[in-house]
Design a protein around this nucleic acid. Structure first.
Lengths: 214, 214
DNA sequence: CGGTTGGTTGATATTATTCAATGGTCGTGG
DNA sequence: CCACGACCATTGAATAATATCAACCAACCG
């Protein structure tokens, strides 16, 4: 390890936060890339009239603050949704590694492409799908990601999202999200109870997500 | 330069296409990154029920097919909107350059971050802004980009987009786009004539884009 | 000409929002 | 244990935003 690294330059540090804390503040120039280890977090933007749009939901293993690789400040705030644990890496350290091992940089290109694909998928949802389809696709997306990370085995996933958060992710109001959830609940497609979401009828959910004939 | 490169491996080639041609087909594995030189193009997705969502509008200098850097196939089709000229680079050649000059890779990270920021900005529009705001922001975005590229000096920009295309970009219907344009025209904010769009009242357009109190 | 493409308009329907009231749950302090 | 406040969800009624359907118009092009 380096003999003398300043306080803000430690190569790798661990951190944690309670629920609803700002992990990255807009304008912040910490130059540290964060990897979430435990818990859920949100990247979200606020419009000038005070409405919120959730840009991405971060699960354990996901990265925040990757902008620091090419930007000196972060634009989009990141906040914890549940209590979180994370570690953070100094961006100059990461670039050092990349300098020694150029293939490492391609990892960033890959990560960046993946998150771009994800936000474009969400763009299609908001532009061209109705509320029921958007919700179904959000749930299927979370289900898939949690399974890939080994954080869910069957049809039940942790679901710490409030209806307002879902609304902010899907471009809807909380009231309407409540109604859409009710509709899916009454159709015996899913169930939400005590922070857990259970998919009762996966086929129907996928049908809803894919294409819902009015 | 290399003595024997196969037909599909030429390091750099030039190309052109008429309007409304597919430049990149989904599933295509050409492994060639395209730089648009002249004309406008679209990256757009089609939903299973046949609706279209424009993901980005490409202007001269913009890049298509950057996915080939990390993916073997392209997912999103790219089509010309006007007649276009472009050149394309073999991705293995680009990686070769990057191997010799690692700093070059960071350019890709930067490009990728920029396009991600752009699609997230659009996401906020579709999720949290009304039709009038979305249109105003689209126009201001095009105006800014064209100015930066030296393709427009004053308040007039080329505007080869059909109303249906605008609708597909903004998540609206063509009919509604027609009405919103009428509203902006009647307010003497802008004017569209023979493929040119003129911003008559920039302040009002910016006010509309930023925040429109109902 | 006649066909095609793109834009406009009106009438109506659907979807989602807004506003407002109500009830549940949970933690905290008396 | 209860009362209270904070937060979240549910519901109804009224309204606003946008879509749908269908007709028509204008420009352009062969």
């Amino acid at each position: 390890m380096g003999a003398s690294l300043g306080e803000g330059e430690r190569r790798k540090t661990a951190g944690s936060a309670l629920a609803r804390q700002q992990i990255l503040r807009p304008g912040e120039a910490s130059g540290r890339v964060i990897v979430l280890r435990q818990g859920w977090a949100l990247r979200s933007a606020i419009t000038s009239d005070g409405r919120r749009q959730v840009l991405s939901i971060l699960l354990p293993g996901d990265i925040a603050g990757g902008e620091f690789l090419m930007r000196d400040k972060v634009r989009v705030p990141v906040q914890s949704l549940t209590p979180v644990e994370y570690c953070s890496f100094d961006v100059t350290y990461l670039k050092e590694i990349a300098g020694e091992n150029p293939a490492f940089i391609w990892t960033f290109v890959d990560l960046c492409l993946s998150s771009k694909e994800a936000s474009e998928a969400r763009l299609i949802d908001l532009g061209r799908r109705n509320a029921e389809q958007r919700l179904a696709r959000l749930i299927l997306d979370l289900h898939r990601r949690l399974r890939e990370k080994g954080l869910s085995n069957g049809a039940t996933i942790p679901f710490p999202l409030r209806q307002q958060t879902v609304a902010d992710a899907l471009g809807l109001t909380q009231v309407h999200v409540s109604r859409v959830i009710r509709s899916l609940r009454q159709s015996r497609i899913l169930q939400i109870r005590s922070g857990q979401l259970t998919i009762l009828d996966m086929d129907a959910l996928m049908a809803t997500a894919e294409f819902y004939e009015t």
